[in-house]
Simulated assay, not measured.
Amino acid sequence: MDEDEQLSHASSFGTAAVAYAEHRPDYARAAVRWALEAAPGPRVLDLGAGTGKLTATLAELGAEVVAVEPDPAMLAELRRSLPGVRALAGSAEAIPLPDGSVDAVVAGNAMHWFDMAVAGPEIARVLAPGGVLAGLWNLMDDRVEWVAGLARVSGSAAVGPRDTPASWRAETAAMHLPRTGGSARFGSPEQAEFPHGQRRTADSLVATIATRAGMLVMPDREREATLGRIRAFLASGPETARGEFTLPMLTGVLRVRRL
């Protein structure tokens, strides 16, 4: 993906902020706990917080959380749904917090949008010594046969390079983390995966897939054709044709510690 295409995808979510808030899944609590277990304190920055999917879980687990989000529509939805959370306009490349002010920086399905050449030193700046940086991604568990079929039918615009376990492991193994933090150094990265799931119907799963960046930037006719194929696939499967079902998922975590 070139720089212009990356920017187009990254800035597309605000057009679907309400749908994103309604349909995107939260994150496995065990994954969030693991992301934070080595943090030296409770102060957590949710960076690229979107509509607050990860923010809400952090708050429920007792973190002293502040959310930072660049898109005005996403930030407005976050503030509406989580009025008790401190939520600021800002980005990974320009974090509106003082030096050493947080014990952990986390990002839910967002770290791959960061320009780490700029964001890396900024993240290191706001992290206290020994602080943790962790990215979390929700993955479709394509080890389940019907989920693998859904991924094939959906195509790359709906199921990207970090959306299934094997591709996520490969994509994040050496990417999306700071190579330098100015004078700060980071330890060796760690990956872990945690079972998760989302209750869906065929219609609500189609609505979820429609909030993905590749779908949001797709021409209308192509998007409707893709969503039509997905609807037909879900209508044809015994697991998904009638009523509610659980979409098998994993929450993958990539974490690293500031030394």
Rank of each mutant, 00 (worst) to 15 (best):
A10D: 11
P83R: 10
G181E: 10
A104T: 08
T251M: 09
A94P: 00
R221Q: 13
G130E: 03
R80F: 05
T240Q: 02
V132Y: 04
V132L: 12
A151K: 05
P165C: 06
G50Q: 08
P129H: 13
H23N: 13
R143I: 03
M215C: 12
T208Y: 15
E22Y: 01
G187R: 12
R229T: 00
E93I: 01
R24H: 05
R179S: 12
A21M: 02
L247E: 00
A39L: 08
P178D: 07
M249G: 12
R229W: 01
R242G: 07
P98N: 10
A124W: 02
P83C: 03
T172Y: 15
A104W: 07
A94N: 11
T226M: 09
E69A: 10
T208Q: 14
S188K: 14
S204M: 07
A192S: 14
L88W: 09
L58G: 04
V102D: 02
V206F: 07
L227F: 08
G48A: 11
G62R: 09
R229C: 00
V106M: 02
M111F: 14
R162C: 06
V206N: 04
I209M: 15
A117Y: 03
P238Q: 07
E37R: 14
L259F: 12
V85Y: 11
V126Q: 13
T15K: 14
A192N: 01
F13T: 00
H9G: 01
G50H: 09
R152F: 05
M140G: 11
F194W: 07
V65W: 01
G155D: 04
V144W: 10
M175Q: 14
G14D: 01
G108R: 07
F233Y: 15
S81H: 13
E60N: 07
M140R: 15
S91Q: 09
L205Q: 07
S11A: 11
P40A: 07
G155I: 01
V44Q: 01
A31P: 01
V44C: 03
L61A: 04
T226S: 15
E193T: 08
T57H: 09
A124P: 01
S236A: 15
A158G: 15
P129F: 14
S81D: 09
A170N: 10
A151Q: 06
R185S: 13
S236Y: 02
A31K: 03
F114V: 02
S91N: 08
A38S: 14
G52A: 04
R221F: 00
A17M: 07
S154V: 04
D46H: 03
L75A: 06
D203N: 13
N109T: 12
A94L: 08
H112Q: 13
R223A: 13
A148M: 09
I209H: 06
G237D: 13
N109L: 06
D4S: 12
I123V: 15
E193Q: 15
V66C: 02
T208E: 11
L150E: 10
A148P: 10
E222G: 02
